[in-house]
Write a protein that binds this DNA or RNA. Sequence first.
DNA 1: ATTAAGCACTTAATCGGTTAAGCGGAGTAT
DNA 2: ATACTCCGCTTAACCGATTAAGTGCTTAAT
Lengths: 336, 336
Amino acid sequence: MATMKDVAERAHVSTATVSYVLNGTGTVTLATRQRVLSAVAALNYQPNHAARSLRTRARTLGLVLPPGPAGLGDPALAELVAGLSEAAATSGYYLLLAPSGDRPEYELGADLARTGRVDGLVLLDLRCDDQRAAHLVAAGVRCVGAGAPDAGTPCPAVGLDLAQGAADATRHLCALGHTRIAMIALPTDLADSEPFYQGFVAALAASGREADSALIVEAGTSQDDGFAAMQELLAHPEPPTACLAASDTLAFGAMHALRDAGLEVGRDLALIGCGDLPLAAHTHPALTTLRAPRRAMGAALAHCLIALVERRPIPPATRLPLQLIIRKSTAPPPGA
Amino acid sequence: MATMKDVAERAHVSTATVSYVLNGTGTVTLATRQRVLSAVAALNYQPNHAARSLRTRARTLGLVLPPGPAGLGDPALAELVAGLSEAAATSGYYLLLAPSGDRPEYELGADLARTGRVDGLVLLDLRCDDQRAAHLVAAGVRCVGAGAPDAGTPCPAVGLDLAQGAADATRHLCALGHTRIAMIALPTDLADSEPFYQGFVAALAASGREADSALIVEAGTSQDDGFAAMQELLAHPEPPTACLAASDTLAFGAMHALRDAGLEVGRDLALIGCGDLPLAAHTHPALTTLRAPRRAMGAALAHCLIALVERRPIPPATRLPLQLIIRKSTAPPPGA
DNA sequence: ATTAAGCACTTAATCGGTTAAGCGGAGTAT
DNA sequence: ATACTCCGCTTAACCGATTAAGTGCTTAAT
């Protein structure tokens, strides 16, 4: 493997000069530069990454994958990772994947940063009062969060405009004539939970309705959680005619519960999800949902984190817009 | 950030001794070892990765992501990556994701290896007479391929037992009473194409049938390719009553073509896919398919590549078994 | 003419580890 | 008693880059 020394010898200069040419620093005459560059080309030289990052950065971003059976199998995460890795690559960074296994995420992340293996970290599924972020920032680790930041979030974050999305979805249900509209929420410790709820309530208020707290149920994140939540809603003395689920996965579970109860999704109860997973277009009926630009979110995370790492000004925290995709799971209320 | 020198001072030894303790090499008395270890603990020391890999390995595996809109969005790939990264992590390696963008895959891979950024590479979708593998192996890069290796494959490979899988699927179709069985093949330059075809032909022969070459059409990999392939089969003067598609994606396209032709999948033509993508269970009718253990495949790739990197004997090339998942897209032939 | 400033380089320190070689001292064989 | 071998540790070279400091030369300023 050719080293910088080899290049220097071939170009009859010192390694310092080679380094200056390659990094565009220092002052080098045209003739010398050309000799160096042709030596580089002739030897097919590329600087050793370890040696370089010993003095500078690793040019690597880290992503700690939370444990759990789905992992990267979750299409939403996979898309985000795709956008993240591609945007990072165009800025000369690569993405290191670190499955946390049974170690705490923040611990693994701190190790990766402390050993200089990565320059910064992406935190998935930002929580309210996120302990991982707190630990890492306190340890001097640069990181950005994926999710809606609240006031106390100690690091920059990139999120979806869930308030807008939930409001759009709710307006659509209102426009169809629904008045008893339920909502299945994500766990409130997820940062994305609150703005979604706010958008829901705001849109209801804007159309003269009021949120009925009995029709708002907090669920987990799994399909089973959505199933249970819908069962709870159906047990209500005066059940809703429409429901907004904070994720597609919850909506899928809700659909099962409706089918089990002998109800037809769309005709008997209008249902909207959030995320637009690939499956959403293929359920029966196809799920009306909010499309989340996960790739763009990954890209935005990359840009933000790289700016942070390079001590450049951080791009303003944009909320990425959701798009309502109307399919077959929404219809006017029964008897309307 | 604490360095090894700090640890050495605190334990009143040289950095060499610290290194010996941490790596388990050299001979160190129990007392010294304990002094070192408690200094390490007290300082929360972890060795700098760049410094370490300057002399040894990077303990990093590389995965070059082929260009294309799907990328990691393809669930089959995402699952493989999940298995790969998890298995690598349990052996102390992490996975570096490098989207190739518009650069040739082998070139990017060669760069990553030459710069010492990764110790080895995983090549996706191994081709017949794979040029990437040839280039990389010639350049002294350690790599393993994902896909069925043929005799000339210059590197170890991990693949599915497609011959067995295709045979199982074909037998199932024969058992249902089909005689005119078609096959939609992957591009023949993919290494996985041939064994699938062989399994198909062998199972037909074993049940006394012969493959009709007019019923075997080579397609691309996209849904549109599957669509076109099925149209071609339906244009046949004596169309098939069953069809085995070499991938779920091709099968999805074929289903659309059948629907467009006014035919009902299952009743009018039995269809089997391969891979068992999440969508396969949600098409209408649900697709009978061969379940591919993509996570296990990723894990096997990791084990193989790490063995290669550490110059240990390479695990014997196992073909991972496919499991036939019978759903609703297969039925006896019309009028049987 | 003299000094100062700039240019185009080189020298050498440095990053933080790994590891071959060396070196006392204790234990064993002759 | 002498030599030989291990053991447990240290010294220092080394990995391959970056970069501060230094050097000799040319050119501009006084």
